[in-house]
């Protein structure tokens, strides 16, 4: 039964390299190597980010549930990020601002740098500066960073729902957003751009 390896096994390093290649290949193939295409999600002229992102999330979430039903994976042994209320909210907000100004996120900027996008290389340079700044002034907000630890809590627990019911709702909301964004994108298509 899965997971087959521990994340710190050396085999995991080899697997991570292969998974990284697939990840980078798919990001580039879907058009995530273009900042103007990525930023489109915020201005209504291109929703590919939302479409790829939510399709991937529901595919993986449904897959994990089926793997558990078939007895192939022990979900209690899977890594789940802890939820630190204030830090997660502030971090998400800053990432939203950084995304709109910079036009990338770390994974997409890495794959765009690989095909020669100079703006992506500059974004990555900025990203590293940000990480250094965070570390340099860390004592100022270490308390805030570690406050409000709710542990590896799940969204359906936070909402007091059944796991399966939540997942069904998530899928419905995702599909509704695909339909809505398809409609909006058509409406704004006169602004359609070449990247």
């Amino acid at each position: 039964m899965g997971p087959l390896f521990n994340a710190s096994d050396e085999w995991s390093f080899v697997i991570a390299l292969v998974i990284g290649i697939a990840f980078g290949y798919l990001l580039e193939s879907a058009g995530f190597s273009s900042s103007r295409k990525l930023a489109g999600v915020f201005y209504g002229y291109d929703f590919v980010v939302l479409q790829v992102f939510f399709t991937a999330a529901i595919t993986a979430a449904i897959g994990l549930l089926f793997f558990e039903y078939f007895g192939w994976i022990d979900l209690s042994d899977i890594w789940v990020n802890r939820f630190y209320t204030g830090s997660a909210i502030l971090g998400g907000a800053l990432m939203g601002i950084g995304f709109v100004i910079g036009g990338f996120c770390p994974g997409t900027s890495a794959c765009a740098s690989a095909i020669g996008k100079i703006d992506a290389m500059l974004f990555l340079g900025g990203f590293i500066i940000g990480v250094i700044l965070f570390d340099a002034f860390y004592p100022l907000y270490a308390g805030f960073y570690k406050a409000g630890n709710q542990g590896p809590v799940k969204i359906y627990e936070s909402l007091g729902m059944d796991r399966e019911v939540f997942l069904l709702l998530f899928v419905i909301v995702a599909i509704a957003s695909f339909v809505a964004t398809g409609y909006i994108q058509q409406k704004i298509s006169h602004k359609s751009k070449k990247y």
């Binding site: 990020n81 100004i101 965070f134």
Partner: peptide
């Protein structure tokens, strides 16, 4: 804009314990 946006994203992903992919 790319450098500034990247820096803000870097600080954000540190607070968020991961970025768009990991978190």
């Amino acid at each position: 804009a790319a450098v500034i946006g990247g820096a803000i994203f870097g600080i954000g992903s540190a607070f968020g314990r991961g970025c768009t992919s990991g978190a």
